[in-house]
Design a protein around this nucleic acid. Structure first.
Length: 259
DNA sequence: ATGGTAGACCTTCTA
């Protein structure tokens, strides 16, 4: 079974590009971030025609996440626990009714820039909530994948020019420490396990020719519970999608699990 | 050199 994550930067602006990739890559489950529309404006029909069930957690203009699956989508929840006052649509979770079910959390973690504003503590609070929730989910001892745009560069090797990210929320010591704390609960970073490119970049800014100069960073991640990690067979970054017409600034990351 | 681009949407915010 193939599970993918992709920050599409507007599902409606990206529709043809995303559909092309779905037809080629044939993910069984896809987590999309930054759909940038309310639920009613998600283009359901073309994905349903490809055989997907769809659950969205949308928002006007910003953020928004979606779960698409060729298998039934069950027990859907929207938003992380303890979210009083948090009106950003950044998390949707469900159990995928595959032959062997897997719980999937689709994550669009706050960017957090600039760090001297309220946005950075919001990012860190969100990460603390995610950690608490992951801790609860791991107690279930089930196959679990937490995947999405984490907006964290885990290590210097995950950036083409790490020094240029000094002072950026994506590479702050606090952000990286929170990422490590999440992993240390017992989650496996899929790209580090079996990926041909353990530090392969997943994002290149639109500005200043970042793609042409390969000024990339690795910020889209797949974290697996032990029960899922034991069944990990492959992890690939679909870098080629970045050079197409009207690309997202992120590319898909796809894992193959023996479920 | 504090630039540059993209998307939603209405003038600027977010990334």
């Amino acid at each position: 079974m193939k599970l993918a994550t992709w920050n599409v930067n507007s599902i409606n602006a990206r529709l043809e590009t995303v559909l092309d990739w779905f037809r080629e890559a044939q993910p069984d489950v896809a987590c999309l971030q930054e759909i940038k529309c309310v639920d009613e404006k998600f283009p359901r029909e073309p994905f349903e025609s490809l055989g997907y069930n769809i659950e969205t957690h949308g928002q006007k203009t910003y953020n928004g996440v979606a779960l698409l699956s060729k298998y039934p989508i069950e027990d859907v929840t929207r938003g992380l626990p303890e979210g009083d006052g948090d009106d950003h649509a950044r998390y949707i979770e469900a159990v995928i009714g595959a032959p062997r079910p897997i719980r999937v959390g689709c994550i669009y973690l706050p960017n957090g820039n600039p760090i001297d504003t309220e946005k950075f503590p919001y990012k860190l609070r969100w990460m603390a909530r995610l950690k608490a929730h992951a801790e609860a989910l791991l107690k279930l001892e089930e196959p679990l994948a937490l995947m999405g745009d984490f907006n964290v560069i885990p290590e210097p090797a995950d950036a083409d020019n790490p020094a240029s990210w000094t002072g950026d929320a994506l590479f702050q010591p606090e952000s990286r420490a929170a990422w490590r704390a999440l992993k240390h609960l017992g989650l496996t970073d899929a790209q580090g396990e079996v990926g041909a490119e353990p530090h392969g970049y997943t994002f290149w800014d639109y500005q200043a020719g970042a793609w042409q100069r390969n000024h990339g960073i690795r910020i889209d991640h797949v974290l697996l519970s032990p029960q899922a990690a034991d069944r990990l067979r492959a992890c690939e970054v679909h870098r080629y999608v970045r050079e197409r017409e009207k690309p997202s600034d992120h590319v898909p990351v796809m894992v193959t699990l023996d479920l």
